[in-house]
């Protein structure tokens, strides 16, 4: 029982990341009809937004402390972040400690801007070209973005810790009446799951309950008619691209404490999130979320030792196997609509 609960929880955080990236991907499919291979790169840019913010907050000046000496006998140089100098060690220190959540505020405008620039600058010219061309040009863009990040930040993973308050593990088993220490789970992963649920909810609410969202949904169903009604649907779709980029970016920001970001993290997630989108059904938002969590949980169950002893290696291939089976039995994916990406 507790093992099952633990594996489900383990699946949730990976599943959250898959779901968020796939949500953005499928949003772009559904609105613009573009296959965006650079979406993983957006995830990575988001993660590096967090790295940048934490570096900016940590900018410090050096002072010489005459009362202490280092091991060579020279006066000790003490590094003090500017923030601590300005706001005092308590508030300034807290700001630095909370750099990852703070990065969200900075990442949103940056990601929306990156999304706009990508759509207006490049992808706009590829609406009429075949899907293969779209895949190829965004694949090239992904390589370029990745290399640019590598040039500025180096090839090594950069650890970016979570705030101290959210670092440890929580004993979840006690909450539901199990023995203590039966289900121990890192707090940040719970935060990540909650954050993902919040974002998914926000995107759905935005599409469902605002006039803007209604127009976008109408445009997804029948772009031409909406255009004939005198609505500038292209502009709204561009904004949706920006939102999709922001969703991927935020997924990246919050993922940094779980896995130290490096320049190819985007590519690693890209393949899997494409599989997720296809399993969920191209252009279907609930499908992407459902498939994301489903595959994340399946993956974590497959990596249980009990399962692995029966079917060795199953944890490595479970996602792909599920994808292949679903694509062959339900060609439109779990919740795919008719007529999306079928030619």
């Amino acid at each position: 029982m507790d093992a099952i609960l633990l594996q489900t929880l383990n699946g949730l955080d990976k599943g959250s990341a898959y779901a968020l990236i796939a949500l953005g991907l499928t949003l772009i499919f559904g609105t613009l009809g573009v296959v965006n291979f650079a979406h993983g790169a957006l995830f990575m840019i988001g993660a590096f937004c967090a790295v940048t913010v934490s570096r900016i907050l940590n900018l410090s000046y050096e002072t010489v402390d005459p009362t202490k000496t280092d091991f060579l006998g020279n006066p000790l140089k003490v590094k003090t972040p500017y923030l601590e100098g300005w706001f005092g060690p308590e508030f300034g220190g807290a700001l630095i400690d909370w750099s990852v959540p703070l990065a969200i505020i900075f990442a949103i405008p940056i990601m929306v801007f990156v999304g706009f620039a990508m759509e207006r600058g490049l992808i706009k010219h590829f609406y009429k070209r075949p899907h293969a061309d779209q895949i190829l040009v965004t694949f090239g863009l992904a390589i370029v973005l990745q290399e640019v990040v590598k040039y500025f930040y180096g090839a090594n993973p950069i650890p970016t810790p979570a705030p101290d308050a959210l670092k440890g593990s929580a004993d979840l088993g006690v909450l539901i009446g199990l023995d203590p220490n039966a289900v121990i789970y890192p707090v940040w992963r719970l935060v990540y799951f909650g954050f993902a649920a919040l974002i998914v909810g926000a995107v759905f609410a935005f599409l469902q309950f605002t006039t803007f969202g209604m127009v976008v949904r109408a445009g997804m169903a029948d772009r031409e008619t909406v255009g004939l009604l005198g609505i500038n649907i292209d502009r709204r779709f561009t904004i949706m691209f920006g939102i999709a980029a922001a969703v991927a970016g935020l997924a990246g920001v919050m993922y940094t404490p779980i896995n130290s970001p490096n320049y190819h993290m985007g590519m690693d997630f890209l393949v899997l999130s494409f599989v997720v989108v296809v399993v969920g059904g191209m252009g279907s938002l609930p499908g992407a979320v459902l498939a994301g969590f489903l595959l994340g949980i399946l993956e974590s169950f497959a990596s249980m030792n009990e399962v692995k002893s029966i079917l060795p290696g199953i944890d490595q291939i479970i996602i792909y196997m599920v994808a292949i089976i679903i694509l062959l039995t339900r060609p439109r994916g779990l919740m795919g609509r008719k007529g999306v990406m079928e030619d």
Binding site: V271, V275, M282, Q316, I317, P331, D343
Partner: peptide, 28 residues
């Protein structure tokens, strides 16, 4: 198996098979 689908689905299916072979070659 892959050629039952076309377009982007075909690309994803072949990608999935290749990643599967890669993962298997690495582990089991």
């Amino acid at each position: 198996v892959s050629l039952r689908r076309s377009g982007i689905y075909f690309s994803i299916l072949t990608l999935a098979f290749a990643q599967m072979s890669f993962n298997l070659a690495y582990s089991v």
